[in-house]
Nucleic acid binder design. Structure first.
Lengths: 247, 247
DNA sequence: CTTTGTATTATGGTATACCATAACACCAAA
DNA sequence: TTTGGTGTTATGGTATACCATAATACAAAG
């Protein structure tokens, strides 16, 4: 099981957190040393997701080296990976920038998410266990109770943790890889959605409905609840994007 | 419009091919210089897709440098990108290897493909134009007529060209990005499927049915034809994988 | 004030050096 | 033959040098 990194704002030093179930007895020891590149990659992905780097902003190598105290090799390999993730794009003769996201792409991302999250919710509901139901409820309670104390980044991650439970409960690990990257690509929209004054959107209520449907084992209801949720967030996102960049 | 690379087996020199519609008049000139890294990346992806590098095979930096005549920087950045694409995985203390694919993952990939390709076929059918129908038929004809003269790699790309037409016709560009990478990850299965003696699989007939349904504008029929196709290839792939690695 | 020419600078592309450490090879002892 | 110790090698991680060229700044001419 791979270590993941504690939440650290841009500019602070991350620390590794070994979490979850370790292998036991005489199983192979599951340890992977964390390279500088791993750390920088996580840090820069977080910085993009939380809006520290804005769409269109250039990611110039040497200033990033100075900021993070690493060599250009580490920065270049990190940028390569983030490019493959769709978070960064390379402009000819200008170098890397944080990728823009127009409604045309965002719409397609929401539609794919809708398909994959509906399928995952249904499968998760149909495979629900007492333990998983407990974990889902706990994740949602954490989301709801600590919501006002959370930064946008913490909220983003708490929401992702909730979805990750659904996808792993469904056994949809590959779909989760896809959706996770989509979550990152539309992170700015997700943050805007949360701060939007739009009253038609009610994330907490939707997630409660999703959680209830899954925990009761009702695949159809779970799928439907996710579909409704995605329909609503798509609508809010469309209004936000149409207001600022018309493509 | 970006140049793409002509098909070149591992060990030969690739040449850039400028294809398709160029910008005209006094539009911005759409040109992106091709770096060594671009070339190596394409080359190595091709080498993995066509089976030159086998799952589990180590991708050792210095021998690859010698083989391709480039520096470790180019190789390392290439490996980073392919890692993000899921074609390469990094083993602790062992370095990069060509990623294994077990049935558990392959099954999920086929299921996601099924969803995305069905949706694309339906949307493409419902948006069909005379021009697009013509292109689809031409692509299929090329596939069928020249099939016996094609290497496995050429067959792979001709099939991908057919699907790309469907996805772009549907306007499902993001889904195509996802599916394209899945195609690469299961390329070995696709090659095995084609060489399999399994009689229940009939790719050419399926693709004809897909093409006919799309060109006739029947979204439901197109979606159904794709679903049937994917059901069959999944079954063949399962038998192949179950026979060699049981996970 | 605008345009053009030119010098300077910034920056990505690429190569190579160096190091730590895990993998591997080999040998001796039991 | 097996096991343990030790030396050697392979290899990934990381830093830095060098270069080409596009971007930028600046000045002069109209």
């Amino acid at each position: 099981m791979l270590a993941h990194w504690g939440l650290t704002p841009w500019g602070q030093t991350p620390i590794a957190i070994m979490e979850g179930q370790m292998s036991k007895g005489l199983d192979k020891i599951d340890f992977q040393p964390v390279t500088l590149r791993d750390q920088v990659q996580e840090r820069m992905r977080e910085a993009i997701i939380e809006g520290h780097f804005k769409p269109g902003e250039r990611l110039v190598e040497r200033p990033l080296c100075d900021q993070l105290g690493v060599s250009r090799t580490v920065i270049r390999e990190t940028i390569r990976y983030l490019e493959a993730e769709g978070l960064v794009q390379i402009l000819p003769n200008r170098g890397p920038i944080v990728a823009y996201l127009y409604w045309k792409e965002a719409k397609q991302i929401y539609e794919i998410r809708r398909m994959l999250e509906m399928a995952a919710a249904q499968a998760c509901a149909e495979n629900i266990s007492v333990e998983l139901a407990k974990s889902l409820r706990a994740a949602l309670e954490h989301l709801n109770n600590d919501r006002s104390d959370m930064s946008a980044t913490e909220l983003y991650h708490a929401t992702s943790d909730f979805y990750e439970l659904i996808f792993s409960g469904a056994g949809h690990d590959i779909a989760w890889e896809v959706v996770q990257r989509f979550h990152a690509r539309i992170s700015r929209l997700r943050r805007l959605t949360l701060s939007s004054s739009n009253r038609q959107y009610s994330g907490p209520a939707h997630m409660q409905a999703i959680c209830d449907a899954i925990c009761s084992g009702d695949g159809q209801a779970a799928s439907k609840a996710v579909g409704s949720h995605l329909d609503d967030v798509m609508q809010v996102a469309e209004q936000l994007l149409k207001g600022e960049d018309d493509y």
